[in-house]
Design a protein around this nucleic acid. Structure first.
Lengths: 338, 338
DNA sequence: CTTAGCACTCACCGGTCACGAGTGCTAAGC
DNA sequence: GCTTAGCACTCGTGACCGGTGAGTGCTAAG
């Protein structure tokens, strides 16, 4: 790949992602590479097809980027775009006007991300591996049944229904919770087993402590919270004009577990990662690309933001916008409990 | 509308909902009304068109039901279908294998309902107007901020972030919660203002009591929990073959607030109610029908189950299946906290 | 190595036309 | 007077077809 081939590949990607028309040598010469003649470009295009970076729909058609071409573009040619000020403002405004609750912020983030990417946005709620126990509350609901509320560091809260002895009334439950709070605060799930036994410990307290440990361990279960928005954008994409293909894609995407697992694959390192076309393990999604990044709340809590669209994505623009949404989502969630 | 016209309308609806082909007089005679001749049926069809129950796409085409025709069918001709045993079994199995949590059950219900209706299913989570306070817990998260957990009758729980005095530690918060529990248990939101002042009442307790009242009042905020599944089914409907129309419909449906408000319009009386085609206030949804019903958990908690599809719905079948899902959803949710 | 010239390919578009399902009308039958 | 057979007519559907033009690959000259 010499510099001129890279320029041509870049031009093909730029033009095709915008127009969705296979790009010909004349178009390239006129619009992007005025100092090279169409004939030369034709020779280079032929080479790029041979190398697998471009595809030719039929003999007398222009070229479109292949999955490999997009991959090369994303890895080596993607220039950092900046988000336009007015877009930045509108995003900030959308977040500011969100109702003051974590779920609402996730919904707003999904809505904003789908609007900015003009595609489908998927978000997973914050998770907290290895978080430290902060406080436990027990609320009796009916005889033999209580609600366990577990709060951990970084504003994360989970509730769970548990069984308790029939005769335990609210005062008893409060006492048990109080004992657990004094003994186990600040510990992680793994350390809860190390809590020493004491004389005044109620018989039920140990069992409930085990439930607390379980709750801490399962805070991160994938698929706990998945918000998505923007299916309407997908159906507008000409790539999904065929109802059968659209149906196949949506069937996969609506099975939230699968998307959640895919998002979970992404390492929580910084930056946006891409899964392009046939790189995806799921056959039905070979015409789609995923862009995935993470957001941080406080120190350890993390969630993922994904954008799903046709391989013909405006990678540069969407990546820049995802980074913006990721940062704001983290900042906003920092204010609320999830 | 004499009996024969009704039979013909019923036959047209039955055939068209199944085949999506405008129904002709010969088809009707051969398949549903063998004792009447096609010519007679033609005369009746012409009358039904004049009365607005049927439409004729073009001069030499068969007839399709109009919105008014569907309405008449739903109101007067809908026969109670029974759910096939194997379907009933599969539904029960799906519910039984749901993870033991309220959200998971709602998701399962949405998945089952969309599968059974072969359309889009929308569910709202349980709400509880006028519920009585059962228990309050306060969990300090950081200085000046605490988590308020409110449990009411019928297994309903809500949490909310509130401001508290900077110097209030967990012991103080627990004391406040304890005071509220002793004073205000069993009261509704409206009755909380009547709680008498006492000597040992902390200054912060009154403010938090007001937050509790607010939480009780907003338990029912529409759109709190909306689960949907089955967009994939909509795109397979030939009615939505046009991407523009599909986009318009999805845009409306994805704005959850609108759907939630629509579901909220439905009175919580028993039975399935229908909004057919242009009866819908939203212009974009004039090609769609809504079927809505409610489910009950315990005594007062209620949520709604909706099915959205093209006006060409298999009303009889879907209604029967909605009643099944509604009953099971209520029974399952009765076991868990929401 | 680059570029002008040129013959060739092939998807796309619009027009034509045969086909057939279904109708409305008329007149005969019960 | 309602029902029905016969029949001409309508009109959407789909197949066929040839012109058009964008774009190519190849060749030879610069």
């Amino acid at each position: 790949m010499d510099a001129r081939k890279e320029r041509i590949l870049q031009a093909v990607v730029a033009d095709y992602t915008e127009t969705m028309i296979p790009v010909g040598s004349q178009t390239l010469a006129a619009r992007y590479l005025s100092e090279i003649s169409p004939a030369t470009i034709r020779n280079e295009l032929a080479d790029l097809v041979l190398d697998g970076f471009l595809l030719q729909p039929h003999t007398s058609a222009g070229r479109i980027p292949s999955d490999r071409g997009y991959r090369y573009f994303v890895d080596f040619l993607l220039s950092a775009e900046t988000v336009e000020p007015q877009v930045r403002r509108s995003v900030r405004h959308a977040f500011e006007s969100a109702p003051p609750a974590a779920e609402a912020i996730l919904e707003v983030a999904a809505g904003v991300m789908s609007r900015l990417s003009e595609n489908l946005a998927v978000l997973t709620g914050p998770a907290a591996a290895g978080s430290r126990l902060k406080h436990v509350a027990l609320v009796g609901l009916r005889p033999g049944q209580a609600l366990l509320v577990v709060a951990v560091a970084d504003n994360l809260v989970r509730q769970r229904l548990i069984s308790v002895p029939e005769e335990a009334d609210q005062d008893r439950l409060t006492a048990i919770a109080s004992w657990i709070n004094h003994q186990a605060s600040g510990r992680t799930a793994d350390e809860l087993g190390l809590v020493p036994a004491t004389e005044d410990e109620p018989t039920a307290a140990r069992a409930i402590l085990a439930e607390v440990a379980g709750a801490l361990r399962t805070l991160d279960l994938p698929g706990t919270v998945v918000v998505h928005d923007g299916v309407r954008n997908l159906v507008s994409q000409p790539e999904f004009g065929d109802p059968h293909q659209l149906h196949a894609v949506l069937t996969v995407l609506e099975t939230q577990r699968m998307v959640a697992e895919l998002l979970a694959l992404v390492q929580p390192q910084d930056g946006v990662q891409a899964v392009i076309g046939s790189e995806n393990a799921v056959e039905e999604l070979h015409g789609c690309s995923f862009l995935v990044t993470t957001y941080r709340v406080g120190d350890r809590m993390r969630g993922t933001i994904g954008v799903v669209g046709p391989t013909r994505l405006r990678y540069g623009r969407v990546v820049a916008r995802m980074e913006l949404v990721s940062r704001l989502t983290g900042e906003m969630l920092d204010r609320y409990v999830v």
